[in-house]
Design a protein around this nucleic acid. Sequence first.
DNA 1: GCCCAGGTGGGTA
DNA 2: TACCCACATGGG
Length: 228
Amino acid sequence: MSESILDIYKRLYRAYGPQCWWPADGPFEMMVGAILTQNTAWRNVEKAIENLKVAGVLCPEGLRDLLEPDLARLIYPSGYYNVKAKKLKAFARYVGDTYQDDLDVMASVPLSVLRDELLTVYGIGEETADDILLYALSKPVFVVDAFTKRLFYRLGVTNKIGKYREYQGLFERSLSPSVALFGEYHALIVHHTKHVCRKIQPLCGSCSLLRICPLGRRNVMCETPDFE
DNA sequence: GCCCAGGTGGGTA
DNA sequence: TACCCACATGGG
């Protein structure tokens, strides 16, 4: 019998404390950050966001008015700058066409409608859509990333690496729908993988107490916190 | 020099 | 549906 989803949350929270995500000045900056951080270290995203701020274009209209090559130059430090420039332009166009840049109106749309809508925008996949829904628009959706899948597989909560929606359903069935809880949980998982999964350990099959999660594509093993 | 980071879209079988 | 691959900088 594996630990419950809620128990694991409590353990992570006890170990690391509140994460208070998402780090951004306002919902639109948060949305931009969600696109820029795709498969990218956050420190690189921060540089790109700072460039956008200094250039005064960190708003839907600003992004729409920029030429794509100029936008690509500004977000250069975040990597994948050509595709991400396309993605940001597409997203800014969507916000303008659909909501006239009014994010309060956007936030008033029902969750499932908004999610489907976001998924039609170029560059917005399931995780980015859910990041935006949860952290910018305060919708109670659970954000799943590659680490979440691997961590909970390794913890024995799931018996195989499943699909995004399977994990999301698992978390959303196991927890009460709370924006604060979902936001903290995802942030704690990311924090754990960033700050603790650095301790590379060989997998010890004989130690039943070793709680493990793989890090990255090479399936490196490490311990999860045990701060009881 | 190698590996990885708060993914997504497009192509192929 | 399930894989593969391209996309790219910057830090450990």
